[in-house]
Design a protein around this nucleic acid. Structure first.
Lengths: 363, 363
DNA sequence: GTGCCGTTGTTATGCGCTTAGATTCCGACC
DNA sequence: GGTCGGAATCTAAGCGCATAACAACGGCAC
């Protein structure tokens, strides 16, 4: 692996100028057939690979889109990693941990980018030095998609001064920060209505935070359903997806007292699955003793026993939509954020609410 | 969004030279505290985001690692996309299509890269122009991981002249092309032995290709087990993961004739799941009428009915190992490929081989 | 007052590519 | 034979940053 071949090397080898070499790769029709062949032959012989850095610098665009997501979704805690020594163990399978919401959204981003000819850049955490990681990613791309809360708000604003940004789960803040709208409210309202009306549940605990507009909308749907049913609306019990200890503590607090509710309505599937684990570990039966519901519709919910009642978000579509919005914004730098129809979520009946096993769409 | 701020703008604003601005971000200790603060303040005010293109060009390294994978794994065929109008439908959930082998490996790559401070670049297909897509990705990164067969072999060789390459499922070709070794043979041998010894199956069809060394090793394990049992070894019936029509045709060819085998041993889970579908559609019961086994251990196998008997590969670990090998190679350009201990695969007992439902590790 | 040294900044150059504009080539046509 | 015009190619000027080499400055011992 000697020094990397450059346009100069190819040009010399082919007996043309560097401009011609460049044209062969960017505007082939501008170059005569015979010349083109000579250049391509030289390029092949030298193992020439154009430098995207140089190209990006010269053109002012990189042709890549960045995706910045949560840290905790990526690094499983030590306790989740099974010992790989056991021959029966599922080596590195974390059905509870993968794929989660962000993974499925990411997939949508990848698909759409591939279709549109953009490369996808995923951020690396813990950047050495003083530069926050999101800034580092932003420097490499023509547009950035970021999950709300995954990066400091002021960093996002700083980035948005340079390139268009789509923040998932955030609110449209103008200033070049767009968002993808998903109707979380209706899904959670339907789910809550089901619990109240069809199961007659009354003592309800809402588990989850109000950290982003999405989470607020979920609680809002919950509140609506209870209000319309003439029931009191409990304040949310703080919990955070990925922060298992807090979730477990919040749940077990109710165990063994007179205060065990009829149902834990969780703001995410992740929290719901952890809650089910904690309740089961405490000797309770879900849903016989207490029901649990989630939100997101991740695959792990379908693998769980009981099968999780939840609200499914169109995760892949969220990712695809984000890319479309972003590319639109990149193409028309001046334009303000164009609104789009909110994507809809779907109430998914499982068993964890107390319904009987049914013909679930498995496989 | 006016013109993007550069070092020059920041320098002017802070009243220093561009070198000083650069030092603040790359060698902070070389700059006096007060100057540093002034520069950072100016950078923040201007929304300065360093250009990775310029940085990469100047330094000769980009700080990113590329991952190039199959196309067919990413774009589901139209028939797999459920109509999103139905409120009950799982919107965009493709449990049969996601996550597959490549997705889980990708996850390992992401995790390891994040840990080591590298950004991950995913290739976009259909690059406009004459340059194969993999070359485009290669130009953006310091090292490339590619699935064997995902790109033209000569393109891989060309890339390897410029940057280190790890090819997954390929063979170590020297020339800067490394690979990750996984013991596929033993897993397939154990699985085949189980079919022959514990289920007494004799009429066996092996479904799959021999396109890469990995697939050869699988067939080899299959062959070994049969030979040791004194049974004849059938030639593989060609099939390719992702090419469903071929797989379906290969399977249905045996249906309705006297030639229906006892078991279809498939070279991947994907093919096995498709085979099960085809057999079920033909009115047969799996495993009562005919058994089916897979290879890989993807999540979809656990969601299927019957639960798939397979061999699980340490997919996440494969990704992580690939990154480690790659970074080693990038750090010591001269060194040859350092061998590593092969990763082991694990035989996973499911129901599709004819075993009774057991306490599977679900959830 | 002079010479030395460590600290803090600056100047100047080049990384490999794109592209506007200049130049050359070549055949058609007067 | 000379001229013109388009096609083909080249020349040259950056793109934004890192960094080697160098300059300015102050403190300090003599």
């Amino acid at each position: 692996m000697q020094r990397r071949a450059t346009v100069y090397d190819v040009a010399a080898q082919a007996g043309v100028s560097i401009a011609t070499v460049s044209f062969v790769f960017t505007q082939p029709e501008r170059v005569k057939q015979t010349t083109r062949d000579a250049v391509l032959a030289a390029a092949g012989a030298l193992g020439y690979v154009p430098s995207a850095s140089a190209r990006g610098l010269a053109k002012g665009r990189t042709g890549a889109i960045g995706l910045y997501s949560y840290d905790y979704l990526l690094e499983p805690s030590a306790s989740d990693v099974p010992s790989s020594s056991s021959p029966v163990a599922f080596a590195d399978a974390h059905p509870r941990l993968f794929p989660l919401y962000a993974d499925e959204v990411q997939r949508g981003v990848q698909l759409e980018c591939r279709q549109r000819g953009y490369a996808v850049m995923l951020g690396a955490g813990r950047t050495p030095g003083h530069m926050p990681s999101v800034i580092d990613v932003a420097g490499r791309v023509d547009g950035l998609i970021a999950f709300a809360g995954s990066a400091p708000p002021d960093a996002i604003i700083q980035v948005s001064k340079r390139i268009p940004v789509v923040e998932l789960g955030g609110e449209s803040r103008g200033e070049g920060i767009r968002t993808v709208f998903v109707d979380n409210r209706t899904g959670m309202r339907l789910l809550t209505e089901h619990l109240v009306r069809d199961h007659g549940l009354r003592r309800i605990v809402y588990l989850g935070g109000l950290g982003t507009p999405e989470f607020v909308a979920r609680y809002e749907g919950f509140r609506e359903a209870l209000s319309e049913a003439g029931l009191p609306v409990p304040a949310p019990v703080p919990s955070h997806p990925g922060d298992d200890p807090t979730t477990i503590a919040a749940v077990t607090h109710y165990v063994g007292t007179r205060t065990l509710p009829d149902v834990f309505v969780c703001s995410t599937d992740q929290e719901a699955l952890v809650a089910i684990d904690a309740l089961t570990a405490a000797g309770l039966d879900v849903p016989a003793d207490v029901a649990v519901t989630g939100f997101d519709g991740i695959l792990a919910g379908r693998l769980s026993h009981p099968y999780l009642t939840t609200v499914r978000q169109p995760m892949e579509e969220i990712g695809r939509t984000a890319v479309r919005i972003l590319i639109d914004a990149m193409d028309q730098p001046g334009e303000g954020a164009t609104e789009h129809d909110p994507l809809s979520s779907a109430f998914v009946l499982g068993e964890s609410c107390g319904c009987r096993p049914a013909q679930h769409h498995v496989g």
